[in-house]
């Protein structure tokens, strides 16, 4: 090993090294507790009992599909809203700076605050219902709080995550040279063709990054779920914390949910990224 390589590896220690140790220890901790080790009370022995118990629980499968649904829809919706905005903001114009800061504003609002503002807005005697009633659209306010489809959670996820996707996509879109798009224009490609054949393939990496990050965030959501989510189904993170606090073998059982949540986030986001790649390739070839 030459001197520079050795130096580089040493330099990685405090930052990257710490990250690796930390994440490794935490994941091993979860793995160990899920099979009965590191018990705070009682003896620590190897057992599959917690996995069997949790996998037989139908709350888990419901939570799994629910979190999967919320994460997929939120990720796809966020990037679909972000793309047109990113393209529009590609070339600076008067007021574009202002518009882009305005669009980034939700990044500043704490998730719980956003959830509260939303619930306040749609509540039975909230603004939206009062407007509906005054316009004569309905005779009695509609009950929208904690809707059982998770629409509230998806709206909040998109509201909060779209600016993030916008940041990533704006950067990617701006780095595409005008010569390429202009050349395509000269060859008679319409706006849609240019988007599908040039912009999408060239911004694939940023698109995948946005999808992955939003998917993982939404799959592990707790704060939107507790304030605005459905009452009759839990998200995986909510289930994990509830089991940890309420059950006699709380730590062990929640460790199994934690591992499932990690797998869901990783595999789900990777699949989403892969499918996106295939779809875009197919679209560009057509």
């Amino acid at each position: 090993m030459n001197k520079q390589t050795l130096l580089a590896y040493c330099l990685l220690l405090p930052g990257l090294g710490l990250i690796i140790v930390f994440i490794f220890v935490i994941i091993s901790m979860a793995l160990a507790q899920s099979v009965g080790y590191f018990n705070f009370s009682g003896s620590s022995t190897f057992t599959w009992q917690f996995w069997q118990q949790i996998l037989a629980d139908h709350q888990l499968s419901r939570a799994f599909f629910y979190s999967l649904k919320i994460a997929t829809i939120s990720a796809i919706l966020s990037v679909s809203f972000a793309y047109p905005l990113a393209l529009w903001l590609r070339d600076p114009f008067r007021g574009s700076q202002f518009v882009s800061s305005l669009l980034k504003a939700p990044l500043l609002v704490h998730g719980l605050v956003a959830a509260f503002l939303y619930v306040n807005f749609i509540s039975f005697n909230g603004f939206l219902n009062q407007i509906f009633v005054h316009l004569g659209l309905v005779s009695r306010p509609i009950r929208m709080q904690n809707d059982s489809y998770g629409i509230g959670v998806i709206i909040l996820q998109v509201w909060k995550q779209m600016p993030f996707a916008l940041l990533l996509l704006t950067g990617a879109v701006q780095s595409i040279g005008h010569d390429i798009t202009d050349a395509a224009k000269d060859l008679g490609a319409g706006a849609w063709t240019r988007f599908v054949k040039i912009i999408l393939p060239l911004t694939l990496k940023a698109l995948q990054a946005a999808l992955i990050i939003i998917f993982i965030g939404a799959a592990g959501d707790y704060s939107f779920q507790i304030v605005a989510g459905p009452i009759d189904v839990s998200s995986l993170a909510q289930l994990m914390l509830r089991i940890q606090a309420n059950d006699a073998n709380g730590w062990n059982l929640s460790a199994t949910v934690a591992i499932l949540l990690m797998l869901t986030a990783l595999i789900g986001s990777a699949l989403l990224a892969l499918i996106t790649q295939q779809v875009i390739k197919w679209g560009a070839k057509r």
């Binding site: 039975f124 009950r143 709080q145 904690n146 304030v227 009452i231 009759d232």
Partner: peptide, 13 residues
């Protein structure tokens, strides 16, 4: 009947 989010949520509503 309607399930609410918490004691306080019931009262608020």
């Amino acid at each position: 009947y309607i399930i609410t989010a918490s004691n306080s949520d019931s009262m608020t509503r």
